[in-house]
Design a protein around this nucleic acid. Structure first.
Lengths: 204, 204
DNA sequence: GGTATATCGATATTATGTTATCGATATTGG
DNA sequence: CCAATATCGATAACATAATATCGATATACC
């Protein structure tokens, strides 16, 4: 199978489609109906579906629900498990580390790190290491995804060490843009950005 | 002043610029330097700056730091306070309601709602009402921004009632796309979307 | 003062994402 | 079996955002 490629926007719509399809009772669903459900343009939905699934839609019936679900789960990587580590076990970090729901999204946090830890600890099932052990443990665990929940002042340094250790993707909750080399992807989660849009709309 | 308009992307970059400028020590900063700092294209930075600030950059010096900060704070609405209410006081809702940092972003959560509450309660300083009181209280408080932290099954109904009560912007933490009439803005905060991008990159 | 240059603003180009159009066709219902 | 039509896929048009190019100029430095 050729290495398919998906636009950022398409990827971000998939979880919504999938969720809806899972709750659906009928056997078939048309792009038209999906579009109506989400308030999207129906051509856009068709393109999204075409990009994830090889199955052709049938006039007057639409697409097979089950096959769509399988294809989307495959693209989204649910089913397989990506291992992740989390750096920074403050309020947010701890909450994320304790959150069980990630396994439904194919994510398992296999270790946590915090500069305040000495020796080796545990947070529920998850082993916790001091920050110095970061590179060594990430390499040992062969983890490709790092979650950064340290404060802004330390985030870039943590990021650099994750990259050094071979991380390929970073989920960044610190309020700054991390600098990473080519080939590493960063997903920023910054509430100030969301608020910027909302707040401006309230004035606009 | 004409009602200026900003692209979504520009708005989301502003908090990063602002944060950096606040921590900066020099009096002037060039778009070139800002671009280098964030790994952005320098033309893009210049366009962003031009859209928020009327001040012209000076060759070989750049822009005045202080004036940029003022202009960005103005666009982002820091300084003035937007009132918000939050619906759904589970783990996430409670955490957000207790978070003090929002005031730095010009946001104050003035009331909370949960279907499990009877009568009138309090969460720290914030009054808490039962879900039935939603429309009435939102109208009374003249709030324009609603935060939805209920589960997916109830989110659309909550959304409808917020709209009915005159809400203009919604910050949605439930994992579905809300349907809203024209003129209402929804900002979705869905971890599955972020993970979709990261997870796909790990396979790609 | 004169020259070199970093930086600017404007404009053009390219890339990405969304929406509109249209002919083809499988299914439905008479 | 036939006509009506919902839905499809493909292609084209449009919109938005990112990047490249380039001449103008204020400042720095000699």
């Amino acid at each position: 199978m050729a290495a398919r490629t998906f636009s950022l926007q398409t990827l971000q719509r998939l979880p919504y489609y999938l969720d809806f399809l899972r709750g659906l009772e009928t056997e078939n669903i048309s792009a038209t109906a999906l579009a109506a459900e989400f308030g999207l343009n129906e051509v856009q939905v068709r393109k999204d579906l075409a990009s994830v699934s090889r199955q052709a839609g049938r006039p007057r019936k639409g697409f097979g629900r089950k096959a769509l679900i399988v294809d989307m789960e495959d693209v989204l990587g649910y089913g397989r498990i990506d291992k992740a580590i989390i750096v920074g076990l403050g309020h947010l970090g701890t909450a994320l580390a304790n959150y069980r729901g990630f396994e439904n999204y194919g994510l398992k946090i296999v270790a946590g790190f915090d500069k305040k830890f000495e020796g080796e600890g545990r947070l529920n099932d998850m082993p916790v290491y001091p920050a110095q052990a970061l590179v060594e443990q990430v390499r040992r665990l062969k983890v490709k995804l790092g979650i950064i929940t340290v404060d802004g002042a330390n985030a870039q340094e943590v990021c650099d060490r994750l990259v050094e250790a071979g991380i390929k993707a970073i989920w960044n909750f610190a309020p700054l843009m991390l600098q990473v080399p080519e080939g590493i992807i960063v997903q920023n989660e910054n509430m100030a950005c969301a608020l910027a849009v909302l707040s401006h709309h309230l004035r606009g």
